[in-house]
């Protein structure tokens, strides 16, 4: 389900699950179903926020992200629903708007 339309010409988006450790990205779209998205939103994980994966838990467990100076762990399945763009690239897009 497409929740937030991003009408700017979109370069191929990645999901948060594909981002390598230590790369800062900006969240652009959330494809989480139904009301579940609220548990992310209320912690400040909303389009426009910066996320940076900093650690994978052992044995394919969740990944720990830095969000607004706090640490939040998300499952791969959840991260795969979040479309992101690299922070540098996003800054460029914003500037050209």
């Amino acid at each position: 389900m497409r929740r937030t339309d991003n009408s700017a010409p979109t370069p191929p988006d990645r999901t948060l699950a594909d981002v390598p450790l230590e790369e800062e990205v900006v969240l652009v779209r959330m494809d989480v179903a139904g009301d579940d998205v609220e548990s992310l939103l209320e912690r400040g994980i909303v389009p426009g926020c910066k996320l940076c994966p900093i650690r994978h838990a052992p044995a394919g467990g969740p990944t720990v992200y830095r969000v607004d100076g706090a640490l939040v762990a998300l499952r791969k399945e959840t991260a795969a629903c979040l479309c992101v763009r690299s922070a540098l690239e996003a800054a460029g897009v914003l500037a050209s708007n």
Binding site: D36, V72, E77
Partner: peptide
Amino acid sequence: RPVPFVMELPP
């Protein structure tokens, strides 16, 4: 169905 797992890690 599985719900998203969001776990805050305090310092």
